[in-house]
Design a protein around this nucleic acid. Structure first.
Ligand SMILES: [Mn+2]
Ligand SMILES: [Mn+2]
Ligand SMILES: [Mn+2]
Ligand SMILES: [Mn+2]
Lengths: 221, 221
DNA sequence: TAAAATTTTTAGACTAATCTAAAAATAATG
DNA sequence: CATTATTTTTAGATTAGTCTAAAAATTTTA
């Protein structure tokens, strides 16, 4: 058996390891979990005891196959529930994270499988993140940050780098949701802000910060 | 904040108090929670500290208004999730209890309200039990045990007294689900078993045990 | 490479929730 | 009403998960 706390740690370790390709540091986990390094060390010992991580004192930590599978299953559940909350219950994409954070811990393989079917086996969640399938595999989708587009290039919004409520709410307010198509008009040298044109010819100015947190699939026009 | 353990205790106390109209005994709670009397005493102290129960040593326990409301909300969530699992995900009525036991603890008023709307504000769960509304009120529905029907009387199945998987599965197998109409043909003196006739003229013999666990709304023919 | 800075672990304490075994209170009975 | 029997509470331990403060290991820097 794995507790909710253990599951949350495994997921945090998985997500950190996803970005940086090296052993995950205690402090990185502490930051992600908003707790102390001491608490993390305690938990790492427990997880190592259960063979969910490979842990060497002072040398950081890596998920074992079992730990990786557990983390992936948790992420699968989290993202499926997010789809449910948005598609079926009509929540906005900035309202679903905390609820999914609870729902992901509900145990029941049959439940997950039926939920998946009910939602028509979605491959991406409301934030554009891929949903692992029942075998723990997910689809890779090439995408580029708006910050890396050249003037004139066009793309469709496929995801966000940052998942904060504030950012998601802002995007929603200005009409930038998944699937929206836009073209980079110009990048301002002074502050790296960008002017983009939407499908309806409406133009928007977005800060560098926004442009570095918005993923697009480049379209060849 | 109330923990899942605290919520489960409150629900257990509520359900015991519902049947017997007196202070709930420690042992009764222990039996319901499948734990020891010592553990119950510990928990009762905590719940009293939080003003969720009125507790006098050796004198049993009663829910306060706050505790009663919490228990009712929990039952509301439990039963709404059961409806979801059966109506939307296609689970059988004998498969949903343990899942609802987990889902009921997910926190989020907006979630419950949206779920309720999504399910068309059901007033009864898949076992025929009433679902409290957002204010904690529920519908009373007069119903009679099959064991108390007179020969010749007819009724529609509205609920079950016992909720065990074995009983629900058995009922499902012989075609006795909510809404099914049946008539008591005769009661056998020897063992109090009953012969009933279904709408399609098919006849069934049911044990006394079954007849004492099946609720019907009597129909005047 | 020695000193300073950073990271990580340990030591010790705390709360929630549980248990067993023993003591105390209450209820039942002759 | 004294003695059983039952119920309930206490005492003392245990485990998961957390914390702060201090010690130890590692890394960085001069
Ligand atoms: Mn979580
Ligand atoms: Mn998401
Ligand atoms: Mn529960
Ligand atoms: Mn039910």
């Amino acid at each position: 058996m794995t507790s909710q706390a253990e599951e949350n740690y495994l997921k945090a370790i998985f997500k950190i390891a996803e970005k940086e390709n090296k052993a995950v540091q205690t402090n990185a986990v502490a930051a992600a979990m908003q707790t102390t390094a001491a608490s993390v060390t305690d938990m790492l010992k427990r997880l190592a005891e259960k063979n969910l991580i490979a842990y060497e004192k002072y040398r950081g930590v890596q998920l074992t196959d079992a730990g990786c599978r557990l983390a992936t299953d948790l992420i699968r559940k989290h993202r499926l529930w997010e789809v449910f909350l948005v598609e079926k219950l009509g929540f906005a994409w900035d309202e679903v994270h905390d609820l999914a954070e609870q729902l992901e811990h509900v145990q029941g393989d049959e439940l997950v499988q039926r939920l998946d079917t009910y939602l028509n086996n979605p491959r991406f969640d409301p934030h554009g993140d891929p949903i692992p399938d029942a075998e723990g595999r997910w689809e890779f989708r090439p995408q580029t940050l708006l910050a890396n587009l050249e003037p004139g290039e066009q793309g469709i919004i496929t995801g966000v780098q940052e998942h904060s409520t504030a950012f998601l709410q802002y995007l929603g307010q200005v009409g930038l949701t998944l699937g929206v198509s836009l073209q980079l008009v110009e990048r301002i040298d002074y502050d790296q802000s960008v002017r983009v044109r939407l499908h309806d010819a409406r133009e928007l100015t977005l800060s560098e910060k926004v442009s570095k947190n918005l993923f697009l699939k480049i379209e060849n026009t």
